[in-house]
């Protein structure tokens, strides 16, 4: 059974007015709704959701990248928490996380960035499960909501293991985004989609994050399968690295497009990460109009 938001109560230490506001928000699934609104309001053919890693290439650099995303018209933003052992990530994101940890980035730093970003667009946090469990699922979800986050993606949390985290997220009003893969059977896919909040994250490749030269042929059928049973929009991610691929993703039926490795590769190399990554995002934005 899902806990209802009304049972959750205000977070400890909050001012009463704020807490009351949150509680009202939680009861209506505030995160879920803000995400839904962003998808609905996306000006182009699909919502654009660029990724950034907290603290990469530096804390200041990450803030500049976040500002550039907002200025270039990102509809939502995915904020990665650096983790020591990111099993679902390829070399670029892995390296970004390693560098963020090396420069001392903590979850608290990421939350501060989240707050800044959330003032301008909905933030979906991407964090590995051990970071969630270290604080406890309930406390983690509450802290994220306090920092303005709307959603949470946990790449190493499959359906079978997700009860506790889903309950905590629902209680806090944070949308736990479900992931489907090209390998998901029809039954699994339906079960995942039924429990998805906010949107469904369709993994476009059989593999880890990283740039690819073209969209795989199975993407169209995968999106179709998800849309056939999903009450929430579906966004495609993993491997989308050019504006042309973004256009193709939208044409294949994606309602959102997530771009990560291509942007983080640029962020790791550029002298002015904000400007360089912003220019790339402008290209993706144009491609989705």
């Amino acid at each position: 059974m899902r806990e209802t938001a009304a049972d959750a109560g205000p977070a400890a230490g909050e001012e009463p007015a704020q807490a009351a506001g949150r509680r009202a928000g939680a009861a209506s699934g505030a995160g879920h709704e803000r995400i839904a609104a962003a998808f609905a309001a996306a000006p182009g053919r699909a919502a654009l959701m660029p990724y950034l890693m907290a603290g990469f290439p530096t804390r200041e650099g990450a803030r500049a990248i976040g500002r550039a995303y907002a200025e270039q018209g990102a509809d939502l933003v995915e904020l990665g928490l650096p983790f020591s052992d990111p099993l679902a990530d390829g070399p670029v994101i892995h390296e970004a996380g390693t560098r963020a940890l090396a420069n001392g980035t903590t979850v608290a730093d990421a939350l501060a960035l989240c707050e800044e970003l959330a003032a301008r667009m909905p933030v979906v946090v991407m964090g590995y499960l051990n970071l969630v469990l270290a604080r406890g699922a309930e406390a983690f979800a509450a802290t994220l909501v306090e920092a303005g986050a709307s959603g949470l993606i946990v790449p190493d949390l499959p359906l079978e293991e997700s009860d506790e985290v889903l309950g905590a997220c629902d209680a806090a009003g944070l949308a736990l985004v479900g992931l489907v893969a090209p390998t998901s059977s029809p039954e699994r896919l339906r079960a995942i989609v039924q429990r998805a909040r906010g949107f469904v994250y369709a993994v476009s490749v059989v593999g880890i994050t990283g740039e690819r030269t073209a969209l795989a042929a199975h993407v169209g059928p995968l999106l179709e399968r998800v849309k056939g049973c999903s009450p929430v929009p579906v966004a495609l991610g993993f491997g989308i690295s050019t504006p042309e691929q973004a256009t193709a993703a939208a044409a294949a039926g994606a309602e959102g497009v997530i771009v990560a490795s291509r942007l983080m590769r640029e962020a790791g190399q550029a002298e002015d990460p904000g400007a360089a990554v912003g220019a790339l995002v402008a290209g993706f934005r144009a491609a989705l109009r």
């Binding site: 099993l87 679902a88 499960l129 790449p155 190493d156 949390l157 499959p158 359906l159 079978e160 293991e161 992931l179 489907v180 893969a181 090209p182 390998t183 998901s184 059977s185 699994r188 995942i192 993994v203 059989v206 593999g207």
Partner: peptide, 8 residues
């Protein structure tokens, strides 16, 4: 606790 891709 693995990515969905591996569950099947």
């Amino acid at each position: 606790y693995v990515p969905e891709t591996l569950m099947p």
